[in-house]
Design a protein around this nucleic acid. Structure first.
Length: 684
DNA sequence: GTAGGGTTAG
């Protein structure tokens, strides 16, 4: 039979495993009531362990300080709880206090202290602890050796890590797992593969952690064939039902773009945990299926899964891609409710979302209120300004980041945002200066995206020839976005000669894209070169390329309304939409608007051209917005293609006539129309 | 009584 005191100990451990502080405190109260005096040492250990693991550091410290009977177990319980809850500095402090009491650390203490040194990036401390472990004769212990190896790997001290691994007198599965997972972290996938094979050769039995770590290596190398074989091996080894391994498989298949298999694994998990949901959701986001990602999230909510910081940041990124501001706002509210809005991932995702949805004021507010920010947060804010075409603010923030945060070196992505802000604002000299100093000032080698920004920067400013010369001198092969930027500039400044070169290169790189063919033929037509223009159209037909269909959509009270060009008779409020369109047309004409059909169409009569551009999907969506949303509320439209010149000038007129803010997000950027002007300054 | 290695995100 259990002694009452043993029962109390078991209850305290149960409180830890169920994460119930309430139960833990109740048991503590019972212990006080029973008036154990003095408190037996083992009960004190249980109590310290309970408080420390549940992250009630002060209570744990209190219990520890009030007893004289503390031992190495008491201290180690406290230290391990600190490390588990991310209080590594406190853990090290407790360790030195323990030694001050002349209590020798044991084989349980060292692993915790190694872990703390690694997570604080303190190589000097780590080496000192290592020396202590050698002196104490504990380094030969398989657990201590394993955690010392893990620490050296995580600190990037490869030589020490290697020595540790080779000189270990004994290895167990955790040792092998540590080796494999650190190889993956260091981007040494081949090493991970070789070690996995070696493990099997020496007759070692991989466990769930081995599989999780190794699946990560397969995701990194996108080795689908190997991963499939591994999946079969996992099932044969009896780990097919393991939820963590299944989660790893979902992630692996998602990263290898095999969503079918990812879903199959997900569907077969009997007890899904929050990581399972998150992995499935992230797989859809990574494969550009944001709608499905949102559905998975809804399903998770229906099944009562509590939203975690991981999950919220995942869904937020889906919303950002969809331009779903309304859904994004409701997620923001959910994040506040779930107390995860302070999480750095969630905060950065919110800045990114608001920036991408053109709600720059909200992005700024989240950014300013975040308790801590990292490189990703700054990048999101800078890119928000870039999307808006606000080079001054983007550059100011970039300046603040480089001058006041020397520890935060700008990344490849930062410079893409900065350069694109320059190009969108026509800041040629500044942009060129930053581009040329990239390597020297920030140690960043220019990549295809940076080159594309510069071509865009020069092209938009009318320096089309210079942009072309710039491409010819590129040390790396020009990509689709580089030639695309040049083609765009040729369209804007009517340079059909260079335009043809750009288009030919695009046809080679992306033969199925209809947009490039359309731009080239329109450009030739505008230059009066009808025969060549027709030839391009004919080629399109021959190869079987169809012009992409234009869609616009908007959300009104949680429902998405989709509009397609010319197909204006499908919406239930079509009559009202048509009436609104006619009214607008009349008012705009009076205000001096004339349809701009110049570059978009060449084989229609004037009258037809007028009507053709009049029924572009964004105009229909706008008309719907005007009847469906209360006066004064901004209208937000998302479009799958680039906005055309006529719609752009029409919406400028409309924004003044109806006194409303109209935000159009096309597949390239944001246009915020207000009082007859657009945030892009007619430069897109 | 106290321990090591793993899966999801911006």
């Amino acid at each position: 039979m259990l002694q009452p005191s043993n029962l109390l100990g078991s209850l305290l451990n149960y409180a830890v495993s169920t994460q119930s502080s309430l139960l833990g405190r109740a048991v503590h109260a019972q212990i006080i009531k029973t008036l154990y005096n003095p408190l037996p040492s083992f009960l004190c250990n249980y109590l310290v362990n309970m408080y420390s693991k549940l992250d009630h550091f002060n209570s744990a410290l209190c219990v520890l300080s009030l007893t004289d009977a503390r031992t190495v177990v008491t201290w180690t319980s406290l230290i391990s709880g600190c490390v588990q809850n991310g209080r590594s500095a406190a853990a090290l402090l407790c360790f030195s206090n323990m030694r001050r009491e002349s209590i020798q650390p044991n084989d349980f203490t060292f692993p915790c202290v190694f872990k703390a040194s690694a997570s604080l990036h303190m190589p000097f401390t780590g080496k000192q602890v290592h020396a202590l472990a050698v002196k104490a004769g504990q380094i030969c212990d398989v657990f201590v050796g394993c955690s010392a190896f893990d620490m050296y790997s995580k600190l990037g001290l490869r030589v020490e890590a290697h020595k540790m691994f080779d000189e270990m007198p004994e290895k167990n599965i955790a040792t092998w797992n540590a080796y494999i997972s650190n190889a993956v972290l260091d981007n040494r996938s081949q090493d991970a593969f070789d070690t996995f094979k070696k493990l099997l050769c020496v007759g070692g039995e991989p466990n769930s952690i081995t599989f999780c770590a190794f699946l990560n290596a397969c995701s990194h190398t996108k080795n689908l064939d190997f991963g499939r074989q591994l999946h079969a091996f996992i099932i044969r080894s009896g780990y097919g039902e393991n939820v963590s391994v299944s989660n790893g498989l979902i992630d692996f298949y998602g990263k290898c773009q095999d969503l079918f298999s990812a879903e199959m694994v997900f569907d077969r998990i009997i007890w899904r945990n929050d990581v399972s949901w998150c992995s499935m959701l992230a797989s859809f986001v990574q494969n550009n299926n944001e709608e499905r990602a949102c559905l998975v999230f809804q399903q998770a909510r229906k099944e009562g899964v509590e939203p975690t910081d991981f999950m919220v940041s995942c869904v937020l990124s889906a919303c950002a891609e969809l331009g779903g501001l309304e859904l994004g706002r409701s997620l923001h509210a959910l994040a506040v409710k779930a107390c995860v809005e302070q999480n750095i991932f969630v905060g950065s995702a919110l800045v990114d979302l608001y920036g991408k949805c053109g709600s720059i004021v909200d992005a700024e507010q989240v950014f300013n209120e975040m308790p801590e920010r990292n490189l990703i947060t700054w990048n999101a804010m800078i890119s928000g300004y870039a999307h808006q075409g606000d080079a001054d603010l983007a550059l100011a923030l970039f300046g603040e980041m480089t001058s006041s945060k020397p520890e935060m070196a700008p990344s490849y992505v930062t410079l893409v945002s900065v350069l694109s802000a320059c190009s969108r604002a026509g800041a040629v000299e500044t942009g060129m200066r930053i581009f040329e100093s990239m390597r020297e000032s920030y140690g960043i080698e220019a990549g295809a995206e940076h080159y594309a920004c510069i071509v865009d920067l020069l092209g938009r400013s009318g320096l089309v020839e210079r942009a072309y010369q710039f491409i010819e001198k590129m040390p790396i092969p020009p990509t689709i976005s580089v030639w695309g930027a040049l083609l765009g500039a040729c369209k804007m400044y009517r340079k059909p000669e260079i335009g043809k070169i750009a288009a030919d290169n695009l046809f080679k790189l992306d033969p199925q894209d209809s947009g490039n063919h359309v731009v080239l033929s329109n450009m030739l037509a505008a230059a009066g070169r009808w025969e060549e223009a027709n030839l391009v159209r004919k080629e399109m037909k021959d190869v079987g390329i169809k012009k992409g269909v234009g869609y616009s959509w908007m959300t009104v009270t949680n429902r998405v309304h989709i509009f397609q060009a010319k197909k204006n008779n499908v919406h239930e409020r079509n009559d009202e939409i048509q009436a609104m369109l006619s009214k607008l047309r009349k008012e705009m004409k009076e205000a001096g608007y004339a349809p701009d059909t110049n570059l978009s169409l060449f084989d229609l009569e004037e009258e037809e051209k007028d009507l053709e551009v009049w029924y572009h999907s964004e105009k229909i969506a706008l008309a719907f917005g005007l009847i469906a949303l209360p006066p004064g509320v901004p209208i937000r439209i998302t479009k799958n293609l680039r906005i055309c010149g006529d719609c752009h000038s029409a919406i400028k007129f409309i924004s003044r006539i109806v006194c409303r803010e109209i935000i159009v997000r096309d597949n390239n950027r944001f246009h915020c129309f207000k009082d007859g002007k657009c945030s892009c300054k007619d430069y897109w």
